[in-house]
C-alpha cells in the first residue's frame, strides 16, 4: 500500500508518455493512486512527485484543489447525492435526509462497516432526471426513497444495482477510486509522436499539402 505497485508504475510511465510535459499527467496519476488504495496517501504523493519530477508539496498542492481526491480512507461506495437547484426543487433534500437516516451518517461520514460514505454534492449533469445521485460516479436517476433502499441493499448483497447505470449492462460497481473500466492505450506504431513543444518549430506538413481529390464545398 501507499507507493504505487509495480504494475501501476508501468501504467504511470505509459500515462506520462502521452504528455509533452510530465507534470500534465499529475491528475490522472493521482486517480491511479486513489484507484490502488481507495484514497490518496502521502507516500503515494511523494512517489508521484518522483515520477513526474516535481516536489511532493507541488503534488499535494494540486491534489488538495480537487474534490474527488480523498486524503483519508472512505467507504467502499461513495454515495454522492446532488442537491443543486434542479434536483432541490424535485426533492433532493428529502432523498439526502432519507439517506442520512438510513445509513446513520451525515454528509462526509462513513458507515461503521466501511461500506458507504455519503456526500452532498453539486450538479452532476443529470438535471432532467432529478433527483439523482452517483455511486462511485455511476448514475442513479429519478430515485425514489424506495429505490434508494433497494440500491443500498443491492450494493451490500451483490456489489451492483439495476438502479445504477454502467457503461456496459451488468458491470459491477468497482470500489471507490476506480473510474472508467477501460484505459486508453497509445501504441508505438500508431502514435503521431508526442514531443515537447520546444522541439517543434515548423507548421505541420498537412497545412501545405495538396489534397488528392477536390470535392464541392
Amino acid at each position: 500500500m501507499s507507493r504505487l505497485n509495480e504494475a501501476n508504475v508501468a501504467l504511470a510511465h505509459e500515462i506520462i508518455a502521452r504528455y509533452p510535459k510530465p507534470k500534465s499527467a499529475l491528475i490522472p496519476l493521482l486517480h491511479l493512486a486513489q484507484e490502488q488504495d481507495g484514497w490518496v496517501t502521502d507516500e503515494a504523493m511523494a512517489h508521484l512527485a518522483e515520477l513526474v519530477g516535481v516536489t511532493p508539496a507541488e503534488v499535494k498542492g494540486t491534489c488538495t484543489f480537487y474534490e474527488m481526491f480523498k486524503l483519508h480512507p472512505t467507504g467502499r461506495y461513495m454515495v454522492n447525492i446532488c442537491t443543486n437547484i434542479a434536483c432541490q426543487v424535485l426533492g433532493a433534500e428529502d432523498l439526502l435526509h432519507h439517506a442520512e437516516e438510513t445509513l446513520g451518517i451525515r454528509p462526509g461520514g462513513t458507515t461503521d462497516d466501511g461500506m458507504f460514505t455519503l456526500e452532498d454534492v453539486e450538479c452532476i449533469a443529470a438535471c432532467t432526471e432529478a433527483p439523482c445521485l452517483q455511486v462511485n460516479y455511476r448514475f442513479g436517476l429519478r430515485l425514489s426513497i424506495d429505490d434508494f433502499d433497494e440500491m443500498i441493499a443491492d450494493l451490500r448483497e451483490r456489489g451492483r444495482s439495476d438502479h445504477l447505470i454502467t457503461a456496459n449492462p451488468g458491470e459491477p460497481i468497482p470500489s471507490h477510486g476506480t473510474l472508467g473500466l477501460s484505459r486508453q492505450h497509445l501504441t508505438e506504431e500508431r502514435t503521431a509522436g508526442i514531443v515537447a513543444p520546444e522541439l517543434v518549430t515548423e507548421a505541420p506538413v498537412w497545412l501545405t499539402f495538396e489534397p488528392k481529390q477536390e470535392e464541392g464545398a
Binding site: H31, I124, A167, H185, G193
Partner: peptide, 30 residues
C-alpha cells in the same frame, strides 16, 4: 472527473479509432 461512463466510452472509442487508422500517424493514408 465525475463522468466515469463517458471516460470509459471515450477510452474504448479512442482505442478503436487508433486501431482502425482514424487517429494517430498518417490518418487514412494522408
Amino acid at each position: 472527473g465525475e463522468m466515469a461512463v463517458a471516460q470509459q466510452r471515450l477510452a474504448d472509442a479512442l482505442n478503436e479509432a487508433y486501431e482502425a487508422g482514424y487517429v494517430g500517424k498518417n490518418i487514412l493514408g494522408t
